[in-house]
């Protein structure tokens, strides 16, 4: 399964939820432990990973999959990375059906075409539309048990382009600042300054 989309829109959460619902162990591959500057070593470490997972039922998760499955035609890379990609694709092909492989990437376009083809499911997890952002902020308001200073619809307009993670963070931030400044909290003021802050960061 390939999950594609901008950061903060639930790729990792979805992978974890799949493992939880199937009650399977969730193995996330850590690249810093695998990618080595020594020639040949990366390939053998990848082999170890696959050897470990193929014997059991599990969900195997590669975050930022593009890091290792880059386009083989990329001219900036040495032959090493090409060997790594070949190993990886081969290993994924050879995995038994009881291993669910979930890969996530922010940059689908960077992926090797051969890698792309191998996924039975390719899902795009996009940033929320205005309606989705409104609904999400509604649910945040209910969960946090308090007003967010502006109507969810207005807030969604002002935070156009934000990911789900950013919306959540924004709402939590508002509530946290509100609670900390009690009893003289000015909710409207807090929302205004935080929105300004968000805009200036977004423009950078």
């Amino acid at each position: 399964m390939l999950l594609e989309g901008p950061p903060g829109n639930g790729k990792t959460s979805l992978a974890e939820a799949i493992a939880a619902e199937c009650m399977l162990p969730f193995y996330a591959v850590r690249y810093e432990g695998i990618v080595s500057s020594f020639l040949g070593e990366t390939t053998s470490r990848l082999d170890h990973v696959f050897e470990f997972v193929r014997t059991r039922r599990c969900v195997l998760f590669f975050d930022e999959f593009d890091t290792i499955a880059k386009e083989r035609a990329d001219n900036h890379e040495t032959g090493e990375i090409k060997r790594v990609v070949s190993t990886l694709l081969l290993q994924i092909d050879r995995l038994p059906p009881h291993v669910i492989v979930v890969c996530a990437t922010n940059h689908g376009e960077l992926l090797d075409r051969a890698a792309w083809r191998r996924f039975q499911l390719r899902l795009a997890l996009e940033a929320p539309s205005r309606a989705e952002a409104t609904a999400f902020l509604e649910s945040m308001r209910a969960r946090l048990g308090g007003d967010l200073g502006l109507a969810p619809r207005t807030l969604a307009d002002r935070l156009k382009g934000a990911s789900y993670a950013e919306l959540e963070q924004f709402a939590q931030d508002i509530r946290r600042r509100y609670v900390l400044a009690l009893p003289d909290s000015d909710l409207g003021g807090i929302v205004r300054t935080r929105l300004e802050q968000w805009r200036s960061q977004a423009h950078q």
């Binding site: 009650m23 399977l24 162990p25 039922r57």
Partner: peptide, 23 residues
């Protein structure tokens, strides 16, 4: 619960615990 072991050809099969804390 146990994880349902993958299909094997051997006569015995190891069983390991499933993760049940979430559901």
């Amino acid at each position: 619960l146990f994880q349902r072991p993958p299909a094997v050809t051997s006569t015995t099969v190891p069983l390991s615990p499933a993760r049940t804390s979430a559901r």
